[in-house]
Amino acid sequence: MSLVINHNLMSMNASRNLNESYGDLSRSTRRLSSGLRVGTAADDAAGLAIRELMRSDVATLNQGVRNANDAISMVQTADGALQVIDEKLIRMKELAEQAATGTYNDEQRKILNSEYQAMASEITRISNATDFNQVHLLNGNLSDKGMKIHFGTGNSSKEDYYSIKIGTTTASAFGLGSAAAADPGKSIETQDKAASALEQIDKAIVSKDNIRADLGALQNRLEATISNLEIQSENMSSAESRISDVDVATEMTEFVRNQIKTKSAVAMLSQANSLPQMAMQLIQQ
């Protein structure tokens, strides 16, 4: 290479190498400080797109877990109310059994019937008052249309939803109490009516137990769903980490290498900038 003064090609070459090494050093510093291998689209465009989709799925799965937990809380609320209703039905059957025996007269049966009707009214009150987040659960509100619980990442009715339906549990729906019209469980004010009420109360207990059994099965399914969603979220997070997170050991090696290259380029640039002075020495002689 000729000794010239119009162009310092060595300096230009050293400057270019310094810029490249410094850029690599800057990238390693950013990755180590952020913990991310893919911090910008320039790092890995395809990886960035995949990572963002995975992150959205992880966030959705985690929300699905919360949705399923809320559904379990709702089911437990309904089941707790049904447990109280169960106690009222047992008491009504006890009263009907008492009124069905011949050792009581009709006047006494009317007294028993007063409590019987009070129990029926309480069953209706509980059914109408039981709600979760202002959604009534036992008054028939969910008997037909039901409630959809969403927990999946898509919109498939089979894979991403549960439909919760809860039958009506008012006294009239069970055929009990004064609101039950001509049903056998309307009252226990006579011996015959009390005897007929026993069978109607048994039917009400079976209906109530079927509802509770469905709720129990649904709670078990929701708990299994939560377990599955948590596993999916964990595995998705692991996959996202492999794409996005920096390997600290490997990147630290790159950082040291780039640091050495940068220092070397700075030193050589300083030397290259001093070379044209050799030409000046020739001119001055």
Rank of each mutant, 00 (worst) to 15 (best):
G185V: 00
G185Q: 02
K186G: 04
E189Q: 13
E189P: 02
E189T: 10
D192G: 14
A194E: 02
A195W: 01
A197S: 08
E199Y: 12
Q200T: 05
D202S: 13
A204W: 01
A204N: 03
I205D: 13
V206S: 15
A213R: 07
A213D: 14
L215N: 02
L215V: 08
L215W: 01
G216P: 04
G216Q: 12
A217V: 08
A217C: 07
L218E: 06
L218N: 04
L218V: 08
L218H: 03
N220S: 15
N220V: 11
N220W: 06
R221C: 01
E223M: 12
I226N: 06
E230P: 00
I231H: 13
S233I: 01
E234I: 04
N235K: 12
N235I: 04
N235W: 03
S237V: 01
S237Y: 02
S237H: 01
A239K: 05
S241Q: 08
R242E: 09
I243G: 00
S244D: 08
S244T: 13
D245N: 09
D245H: 04
V246Q: 00
V248I: 12
V248H: 10
V248M: 07
T250A: 13
M252K: 08
M252E: 07
T253H: 09
E254C: 09
F255I: 07
V256K: 12
N258V: 07
T262N: 02
K263W: 06
S264L: 13
